[in-house]
């Protein structure tokens, strides 16, 4: 038999789910590399929003994003007030850098988020886990910041390598989101 025909047949035998044929997103892997309040929430909202739509979602926290999944910092994230011209444009950079300003701005932002019924980071992570989302920490970054499994919140399933993270994305219809 002609090898080309064999190949065609083997492809046909692979059953691709109907959704994927339509280009529908079936899974997202969200990489959070920043530790500011707004970056972390962007990742959490995207992951939870995917699960709500029936899309599988896994999260990979790396570099400063790791702060968001440590017991010490998860619920105490700050937003950057310096070098962030879109935030309070009327405030001069020098003022934005004064001691306590960042904490105050973060507190105000936190209050606004509470009004919108947005959960705190640890509760958000619990919601994502309850929805079947898996949460991972980056091994390289964890080594760099001397963080161990016990330093992370319970929702962190494991500390994995970048190769393991790519393995999470296996299958058709997977999208990556990098924050």
């Amino acid at each position: 038999m002609n090898p080309t025909i064999d190949k065609t047949e083997s492809i046909e035998k692979v059953s691709i789910p109907e959704l994927e044929k339509k280009g529908r997103i079936t899974k997202v892997v969200i990489i959070v590399s920043k530790g500011t309040l707004e970056s972390v929430y962007a990742g959490l909202v995207l992951a939870n929003g995917a699960l709500m739509e029936g899309i599988q979602a896994d999260m990979f926290f790396t570099f400063f994003g790791l702060q968001a999944v440590t017991k010490a910092h998860a619920d105490h994230l700050h937003t950057g007030t310096v070098g962030n011209p879109a935030f309070m444009p009327a405030i001069p950079t020098l003022v934005a850098g004064l001691p306590g300003f960042e904490a105050f701005a973060s507190y105000m932002m936190r209050k606004e988020m509470d009004k919108l019924d947005m959960p705190h980071v640890t509760e958000f992570l619990q919601m994502i886990e309850a929805g079947g989302g898996e949460i991972y920490a980056c091994k390289l970054a964890a080594d760099m910041f001397h963080l161990k499994k016990e330093d992370f919140v319970d929702e962190v399933k494991d500390i994995i390598t970048v190769g393991d993270m790519y393995a999470l994305a296996e299958g058709e219809g997977t999208h990556f989101i990098f924050i």
Partner: peptide
């Protein structure tokens, strides 16, 4: 709880 909600209504619990 949220986990049970996902189990009862798989594939997007709130919308389903």
């Amino acid at each position: 709880d949220i986990k049970q909600f996902y189990q009862l209504f798989p594939g997007g619990p709130l919308k389903n």
